[in-house]
Nucleic acid binder design. Structure first.
Length: 419
RNA sequence: GUGGGCGUAGUGUAGUGGUUAACACGUCAGGUUGUGGCCCUGAAGAUCGUGGGUUCGAUCCCCACCGUCCACCCCA
């Protein structure tokens, strides 16, 4: 028997209501903020991710679905959305559009990871990117967008954490201090963190080890190393976020000096939304500023900021919080036929559909079974067509949901009756 | 990639080293002649994840693989 590849999922009809709800909400919120949709290819040149995401990152080093096509080019199933959106920005000359260019995407991402709940090899992201404006108001806008999205979905009890990881130049000095600090306690550090200290000192900050966490709380803070513009930027952002509290009563944030991000291209603002009772793979939405990226990819120096949000994780949280979905679309009519009225029933079904009334034929079974079927599929009405109705040119309309009585109406008026 | 738990009909579970693997839900049929939802009866549906091994004999014991879940790693 064939099975779906490891870490992939069928989104069955029974789950589509969640997907529709989330995607609809994402599109609506994006529209409110003036973000327009962009779709980029599922495959990109491998080089784009090596350059954009960062050659040293885990994503590039060990999680990409990379293959050589028949022409000998190395292609990769996109592991994240930002690099491709930036590529499109450069390639399509979007610097000639009014800045910033606001775009969003709803798209599948691929990473060769070990699956877990909330961690898949193919997952879908709602992402938003604002490119071409480096001011703090854009940072606040993206954070507000993320907040609005999650809130409008009905999710509550989540935390927004923010931090600034400074500009690359400032980070050099900061990283030095950080390394010094942790080196003093090297003997107290668990093995994993000693290794991290060498490879990615920032990562030591968000270690899961208790001992490290205590040390990390007292570690030098990147926000204390901000200078000039990046300091102003940070302070403006905090002011803007405080302003959001006036407008959205439930808006709140915490500055978390241990928040870092895994992708190389981030600078300054980073942020993350996660459920309060977050388990291992809890992060619902995360992003940050990536001012160096466009230039790294060969464009003019252009600031940018964005976030990605895993739809599967959002849906897990919707289920966790038992958030009711808007009513799902149901059939207007199931047509039940008695005796040899079946072809007339088929014709009636077609006529209704041509008038955009949803209608299906009950399966060719006993009358009782057909009625049961109409009930099972939760149709609004059963339309009964038998010899009696054929003779009088009518159809019996039986409402299936409430206790309204069955009525007999002429074939011609069925359409208006159901509408 | 590391460590650990789990893997029995569509779903959720029970069960045993030895003839026909159980229950619930779901599905289908029937409970007479044209009316669903409740109820009753019956039926179909499982090579007990896959492949090896131990044994006279394995769904049950052992190993490997696959899948899934948890923690790490990483990240959305």
């Amino acid at each position: 028997m064939f099975k779906k590849p490891r870490g992939t999922q069928d989104i069955l009809p029974s789950d589509q209501a969640y997907w529709n709800y989330v995607r609809r909400t994402a599109r609506a919120v994006a529209a409110d903020f003036g973000y327009e949709r962009i779709d980029t290819p599922i495959i990109e040149s491998t080089h784009l991710f090596q350059r954009g995401v960062g050659d040293e990152t885990d994503i590039v080093q060990k999680e990409m679905y990379t293959f050589e096509d028949l022409g000998g080019d190395s292609l990769t199933l996109r592991p994240e959305g930002t690099a491709a959106v930036c590529r499109a920005y450069i390639e399509s000359g979007m610097q000639n559009l009014p800045q910033p260019v606001r775009q969003f995407y709803l798209a599948p991402m691929f990473r060769y990871e070990r699956p877990q709940a909330g961690r898949l090899r193919q997952h879908n992201q709602f992402g938003a990117e604002a490119i071409g404006d480096g001011s703090a108001s854009v940072d606040a806008e993206l954070i507000e967008l993320g907040f609005a999205y999650i809130s409008r979905l009905g999710i509550s009890d989540f935390t927004l954490r923010i931090n600034s990881i400074a500009d690359p130049a400032e980070r050099v000095t900061y990283l030095g201090e950080l390394r010094n600090y942790f080196s003093k306690y090297e003997s107290d550090l668990p093995g994993v963190d000693r290794a991290r200290l060498e490879r990615a000192p920032l990562r030591v900050l968000d270690s899961k080890e208790r001992a490290t966490q205590r040390l990390a709380d007292e570690a030098p803070r990147s926000v204390d190393h901000l200078e000039g513009e990046s300091r102003d930027h940070w302070e403006q952002l905090l002011g803007l976020l405080d302003g959001l509290k006036q407008i959205y009563p439930s808006f709140d944030y915490v500055v978390d000096h241990r928040l870092v991000r895994g992708l190389d291209y981030y600078n300054r603002t980073v942020f993350e939304f996660e459920p309060k009772d977050a388990g291992g793979q809890g992060t619902m939405l995360a992003g940050g500023r990536y001012d160096p990226l466009i230039e790294i990819l060969g464009g003019q120096p252009t600031p940018g900021i964005g976030f990605g949000s895993g739809i599967e994780r959002i849906i897990l949280e919707l289920k966790e919080q038992e958030i009711p979905l808007p009513e799902r679309e149901s059939l207007d009519a199931v047509i039940v036929s008695v005796g040899d009225a079946r072809s007339a029933a088929a014709r009636l079904a077609s006529e209704l559909r041509s008038k955009r009334i949803s209608a299906i034929l009950a399966p060719n079974r006993s009358f009782k079974a057909q009625m049961r079927y109409a009930n099972q599929v939760q149709a609004a009405n059963a339309l009964i067509l038998g010899e009696r109705e054929l003779e009088s040119g009518t159809v019996a309309v039986k409402p299936m949901q409430g206790d309204d009585p069955q009525v007999e109406i002429s074939l011609e008026s069925v359409e208006s009756h159901l509408k």
